[in-house]
Design a protein around this nucleic acid. Structure first.
Lengths: 141, 141
DNA sequence: TCCACGAATGAGTATCGTTCTCATAGGCAT
DNA sequence: ATGCCTATGAGAACGATACTCATTCGTGGA
């Protein structure tokens, strides 16, 4: 698998080795991962780390704007690298999800007054609706 | 406890009296409320209801597209009526929030292919960044 | 009017993802 | 080596939400 020696110079200057491994995992994964997922994936590898550390670093990555998270109705948080500008359309009934390959916001900008001095890091955009199956099921009920 | 007499004609045909009261509370409130907030606000009034019922109905309202929720980093869910098209800019560090009075998405539409047959109910849009205070604090640290 | 049955309700409990605690390990400069 | 600081992780604590299930309400039929 991956080299086991800590990167002497991580791509993101501010990240330590474990944070970098978490980010790598997220970037390699084709989909969003939960904290538990990440913990499980790294377990057994040379980069394994405790759950507390996983969550600690996910928070740091988020505060640096490298990782975004969204919450499922179940309460789980799904993490993804912000460089992947994908968003989701979720069924409020069954929870099924469609990935929107392109961000409808594109480069829609907030004006300075709206920003109020904030330094913008990333955004989350989620659409909710009824999937075809649930529409049908509700219609017949 | 007082028996709940169903409103003969609730504004939303599909809602029972308790669901309507929850929706009323959300619409009257100037800000988003948590499930616990709603439970506390209704306690003591003729419309009081158990926490389980609050969450049950909030889920129903969400499934009908009348209510939207977003999650704070703390894990709490904040509910607001979807008719109020307000979104937020939140500091990833201190959690302070700015309300965006106008939705930057306006009427940006998803094309039918993106929708994949889903019936769109509402969306959530959140921006994350660093507030002026945290920028300064991090800069000096 | 009375009865029966399904839906709604809520008090308490269970669940489970996330955060916290705190003792220990690892670096690093002295 | 010695002390100091940060990072780490095991386990417990926490807290919001979902579930259980006995009870109540509402409604329609007899």
């Amino acid at each position: 698998m991956a080299p086991q020696v800590a990167d002497p110079a991580a791509p993101h200057g501010l990240l330590n080795a474990k944070q970098q491994h978490l980010l790598d995992q997220l970037q390699e994964a084709s989909e969003e991962l939960t904290g538990q997922d990440l913990h499980a994936r790294l377990r057994g590898t040379p980069h394994g780390m405790g759950l507390a550390t996983v969550y600690r670093h996910l928070r740091h990555l988020q505060q640096r704007g490298l990782v975004r998270c969204r919450h499922l109705p179940s309460g789980e948080a799904l993490f993804a690298p912000t460089e992947r500008d994908e968003h989701h359309l979720t069924c409020v009934d069954c929870g099924s999800t469609v990935v929107l390959r392109s961000c409808p916001m594109h480069e829609t900008h907030l004006n300075p007054q709206q920003l109020g001095g904030y330094q913008l890091l990333f955004h989350t955009l989620e659409f909710f609706g009824l999937c075809p199956g649930c529409q049908e099921r509700q219609g017949s009920a």
